[in-house]
Write a protein that binds this DNA or RNA. Structure first.
Ligand SMILES: [Mn+2]
Length: 265
DNA sequence: TAAGTGTTCACAT
DNA sequence: TGAACACTTA
């Protein structure tokens, strides 16, 4: 998911940071990342439908970490499923059902450890869970937003319009949505990796004035993204080579034969 | 060297 | 919600 291999590709646009660098800033958080991580701590209970607040504790721990650095969080939740990702969603559901069956089977055989692994593979983040976290946030006066669809575009909106100085996520798509500063891989020590829009040209190996963000976004789309089937055999490197030499930045009107010719296929 | 595929990992004791 | 890693393929 996201753009395959984009983060390693953008190494020259990234640097390690400490949360303390962002004292006084506002951060829009892709909170489903935290929900998924937090759900690991209580996977078995969640799958069995037993009450647990493990995932709430985890999210709040992360929130408190931001607060301790005087960073104001805005938690953004995913809303409706995007129709374009229905196939992905169905596959995931199928996988969850499979692992759930396997987990119960292993449990009957007394293989506790193996069962636990399967439980972790079939946790689903429900809107009820999201609501529990929202309630916990309200109790502490933490801002929350539920996006119409994926959180991605909502997070970008907050960042682009200056409501949030930074975005915290694990999803490389946020770069394409035009965010200026994104923190990936934030850990409980307050460390993370910052990717900046202003530094994207460094990874493309072009001077700043020759960098075109639309071109960059279309390069990523050409390499393959979540919303449509992608061309086999074309990844980021070939897409990048193509977009460096082409003057037409529009991926939809450039002729396919030109692309295929260029990447030698 | 690049891209595709399948597997593992994220929590926390 | 996703990425990283190991391995295969061309
Ligand atoms: Mn995304």
């Amino acid at each position: 998911m996201g753009i395959q291999g984009l983060l390693p590709f953008l190494k020259k646009s990234s640097r390690n940071i400490q949360l303390s660098e962002f004292r006084g800033k506002v951060a829009a958080v892709d909170v489903y990342c935290w929900l998924h991580k937090g759900a690991f701590s209580c996977a078995e209970k969640l799958v069995k439908g037993e009450p647990t607040d493990g995932y709430i504790i985890y999210v709040m721990k992360q929130v408190n970490l931001l607060l301790s650095h005087n960073i104001k969080p805005i938690l953004v939740f995913d809303g409706c499923h995007l129709p374009a990702k229905e196939v992905t969603e169905l596959k995931r559901r199928e996988n969850r059902v499979k692992n759930r069956r396997k987990a119960k089977e292993l449990l009957r055989e007394g293989k506790i450890k193996e069962a636990r692994e399967c439980f972790q593979r079939c946790v689903d983040i429900t809107s009820t869970m999201a609501h529990e976290v929202i309630k916990a946030c309200r109790a502490r006066n933490i801002d929350t937003i539920v996006a119409p669809y994926e959180a991605d575009s909502q997070l970008a909106f907050l960042n682009i319009n200056g409501v949030a100085d930074i975005v915290i996520t694990e999803d490389s798509d946020l770069i394409l949505f035009g965010c200026s500063k994104i923190i990936f891989k934030m850990d409980s020590n307050g460390c993370g990796v910052l990717v900046e829009k202003e530094k994207l040209h460094l990874s493309m190996n072009v001077p700043r004035d020759k960098f075109d963000f639309t071109k960059f976004r279309n390069m990523c789309i050409l390499s393959g993204c979540d919303y449509l089937p992608s061309l086999h055999g074309i990844g980021l490197v070939k897409a990048c080579r193509f977009f460096i030499v082409t003057s037409n930045p529009d991926v939809y009107t450039v002729s396919l034969s030109k692309v295929l010719n260029f990447v030698n296929m």
